[in-house]
Amino acid sequence: MTCEELVHYLSAYIDHELDAELSRDAQEHLATCQRCQVVLNTTQRLILLGHDQRRYVVSGALRENLYRRIEQSLYHKPAGQG
């Protein structure tokens, strides 16, 4: 497998969607190619960083504000529109 091919298959490799033979080829390439190993490590870390973003929730005042705005539209429409 070449570096180009490894990069092409990278997401499929990470997501365990490659067939056994391609997966083995990818592992062999990674064992001998420092550059592709770094690309793999950092892409996997990026994905974990993505997962971590679920810690970020709409907080405090903004949450309350959005809730009120939507509630207002739903339940307290001006006369003639409900």
């Binding site: 570096c3 550059r35 770094v38 690309v39 490590n41 950092t42 870390r45 993505g50 971590d52 810690r55």
Partner: peptide
């Protein structure tokens, strides 16, 4: 796509450097 060009391995940076507010904003 172009081949990956920036090849520094930041995957082993400590957690607190990766989970900062600044990283969150940079990612979004």
């Amino acid at each position: 796509l172009p081949l990956p060009a920036t090849l520094v391995d930041w995957s082993t940076l400590p957690e607190d450097q990766l989970l900062s507010e600044e990283v969150h904003e940079t990612l979004f």
